[in-house]
Each structure stands twice: as C-alpha cells, then as structure tokens.
Amino acid sequence: MIGKDSKTLLDVQGLRATVNGIEILKGMDLTIKSGEVHAIMGPNGSGKSTFAKVLAGHPAYVVTGGSVQFEGKDLFVLAPEARARAGLFLGFQYPIEIPGVANAQFLRLAYNTVQTQHGKDELDPLEFDDFVREKMKLLEMNPDFLDRSVNEGFSGGEKKRNEILQMALLEPRVAILDETDSGLDIDALRIVAGGVNQLANKDNAVVLVTHYQRLLNYIEPDYVHVMDAGRIIKTGPKALALELESRGYDWVSAEARAGAGAAA
C-alpha cells in the first residue's frame, strides 16, 4: 500500500556490480518506501537475483559504481551481518542446508542476535519455543521442523516456508524475496504468500523478485519493475505483470531500445 507519510527505506542510484569480473548490474535505479510492495520481473540473466545478493552483501559480487542508501545511510559500509541486523532481509532462492544444526537452534540464534542489536532481551530456548510456534502457525508449519536440521531434507516448499518464518522472526524493514515462488505447488504458494501478506505493514517494504505473474495473484504489488541487461527498463502498476504474462518481455525491451534511440 502506498502511504502518504511513508518514508524512503531503500534508495538505489546508478548501481553497478560485477561477478567474476563480468558486469551484471549496469546502472540500476530504484526507490522503495515504507508500506510498499515491489515486484521485480525480467528474463533470465537480466540481473534480478544479482541485485538481491548485492544488497545482502554476498561476497562473490563486487559493487563497482552507484550508491544504495538504506534508511538514509550508506548500505555498503555495512558487513552482511550488520545489514541483516539493521533490518535488511534476503529470502534465498536456494536456502542452504545445515546438517547437524537443529532448526530451532539456528532460528533462536538469528532471532537473539537481531534482538540484542535492538537492545532487547534474548529469549531462552523455552521462551523461544513458545514464540516460534506461534509464528509457525502463520505458515502452517509442523512444529517437527524445529527439531530437524536446518533445511536438511526439506522439500522446496518447506524450505521457502522456513525462509518466510525467518522473516517473521527477524521483522525486517525491507525484505527481498528472491524467487520465493519457484518450486512451490499451488497450496504452498498460497500459504507462503499468505504469510508474506500478514508480515507486510505500513512501516516495512517487500521486494518480490520473480519470473512469474502467478505469485502476484496472491501478493499484490504496488509497482512492477521490468529488469533487462542489468537495469530497470520499465515500471508500471500491477496490470503490467498481467501484460508481461500474456505478451512476454520482448516488447518491453524493444520499447526501451526505441526510447533510448529517441532520447539519443
């Protein structure tokens, strides 16, 4: 929802980034305000996931230009863990399995780390257990998932639910969900989307990185952005996603090229 007294949470200007020396982001601009839901769409290789990872601070990606302000501060002076503690969250496309660490142990460690940052008290295992079980209801997750190793042997849908559970626990200001819909069947998609909808509020923002319009039937974006060749080439309302679904991406790219030609 676009609010009157919303604040700018994330301000991306001319962002450029490389991986293995190859430039993937080539001047990305995006402004995200509190209360908003953004969808970033685009063909494979357009840089959507790179954008998500650069924001979270993945070590393989090197920022070569531009700036990102997170709540008015330079994001790139912060280490990945400091970004997380400051309220930036990345929902992984492929969540990592950690055999040997109980999910409850991992979730509590993450939760307490972020709580401490906000000057709040840590929860002991018993207190945390009650707390996390409540949050799990939001995602219709079986409490058995607390005792299992982090993501180990989880189905695709279970892994994604576990990601949104982490979002629910960490209560980020900006959540970037990287292809959270990939690999989900229709029931899992509904549950995951329902969880995200309940977590979105007037003070935070959600960025959905997705290939498909399908997710947007469940989570209504305020803005739909189309990425191509490392930049956002078109921004529109929710209806743009439907148009992309029926017409593909080529026409947007052509339009962008024509626009660029006209401007030149």
Binding site: A84, V101, F106, T113
Partner: peptide, 22 residues
C-alpha cells in the same frame, strides 16, 4: 553457507563456529 548465516545477522565468527560445530 557462511553467507547464509551472516545474512541472518550472525557475525563471521559465529557463523563459522556454528558451521564447524554442525
């Protein structure tokens, strides 16, 4: 793996220690 844990707020040392423990 280290990045995943850091993206959840764990320090580099805490992330490495947890993964080693695991």
């Amino acid at each position: 793996e280290v990045f995943y844990l850091k993206s959840r707020g764990l320090s580099d040392a805490a992330a490495r220690s947890l993964l080693t423990y695991a």
